[in-house]
Structure formats: C-alpha cells, structure tokens
C-alpha cells in the first residue's frame, strides 16, 4: 500500500477535516477503492473517527471498501434500459467473468456494477466501461468487449 500517495492527497487539502469527503474521493480515484490502511491514515491525520469515515463510505454508493477491478462494467438498470434487456447483459457479464454483479474478479481486472438510469435512455441498454458509454448493447457485444479487453491486457 502506498501510503505516501494518501499523505500527498491529505496534504493537498492542508489536513482540513472539512475536506474529508473530497479526500476520500481523491483516494478512491487513485486506488479505485478505499483501502483500510488509507482509512486509518485519513482518520489519524484529520483527527476524524474511523467510525465516521466508515459511515460515509457505506452511505455513498460511489465508495468501495474492497479492491475494484481495473475495468468497471457498469450496467444501467434504469427503467428504459431494463425493459430493453439490461438484466440479460448483467447475466452475460456474470457468466463471462464468473463473478456475481457487484463483485471483482480475482485478478483485479473487472468489476461489475449496476446503476439506475444514467440519462441516456435513448441509447439503452447501456454498459459503461470505465467511463466509456456503449449504447444499444447486446449480450454478444458485451461479451466481445470483455474479450477485447482481456486480450489487450494479455490475458486468456
């Protein structure tokens, strides 16, 4: 764990406890999740109880306390995407990656996530992979995407 990175982020905010949320976001951006050591460090440096940080980290769905994959496949489960078969896309991803939705593969390459409407309903169903919006998705297309990333990353 590179605590130096966490320290640098906290320093950027001058150890200001009112910047807690921003610091948590920056750490999460840097590491893709909030490692426990980072939470402890933030708590010590800002004099904010761990209980409070844990409370915030579990309140906001954008925070993760477990390691996340390099690629996050976010499936929109909003009404419009749902009626166009978003559920099938999740199931396809679950099969291809052999993990349940919400989890991360052991090689830390992929995570599956579900959200509710990202405001691009006309393009539904949507799968967002690390911020890249893929509209009009089908199970086949999603599978292809995953394969592509896998080979690109030198995997099987």
């Amino acid at each position: 764990m590179e605590l130096a990175k966490v320290d640098a982020i906290i320093d950027r905010y001058n150890n200001d406890p009112t910047a807690l949320l921003a610091i948590m976001q920056d750490v999460q951006d840097e590491m893709r999740y909030l490692p426990r050591e980072a939470v402890t460090r933030i708590s010590q440096k800002l004099s904010v109880p761990v209980a409070r940080i844990y409370s915030m980290a579990t309140f906001y769905t954008s925070f993760h306390l477990e390691p996340r994959g390099k690629y996050t496949c976010t499936v929109c489960m909003g009404t419009a995407c749902h009626v166009r078969g978003a559920k099938r896309l999740v199931e396809q991803l679950e099969r291809d990656l052999a993990i349940p939705s919400g989890k991360t593969t052991a090689d830390l390459l992929f995570s599956i996530e579900e959200v509710n409407c990202v405001g691009a309903c006309a393009l539904g169903p949507l799968v967002i992979i690390n911020g890249e919006y893929n509209g009009n998705m089908t199970s086949d297309l999603v599978s292809k995407k995953v394969k592509q990333i896998k080979s690109q990353e030198g995997g099987a």
């Binding site: 426990r36 939470v39 109880p49 761990v50 209980a51 409070r52 940080i53 844990y54 409370s55 579990t58 309140f59 769905t61 306390l65």
Partner: peptide
C-alpha cells in the same frame, strides 16, 4: 459515544433499508 464519551466507536452505516448503527467494518 461521540459527544459525551468522546470515544466515537459507533456510527450509522449504509443507507436506505440497509441503514444500521454499528462499528467500523
């Protein structure tokens, strides 16, 4: 625990129907 004892061992966790009180982790 937070304001009087000043230990802060507890807090709320989660949200919505997963809201609870508890200890970190």
């Amino acid at each position: 625990c937070t304001e009087v004892v000043e230990v802060s061992a507890l807090n709320f966790t989660g949200r919505g129907d997963k809201r609870n009180v508890g200890t970190p982790y």
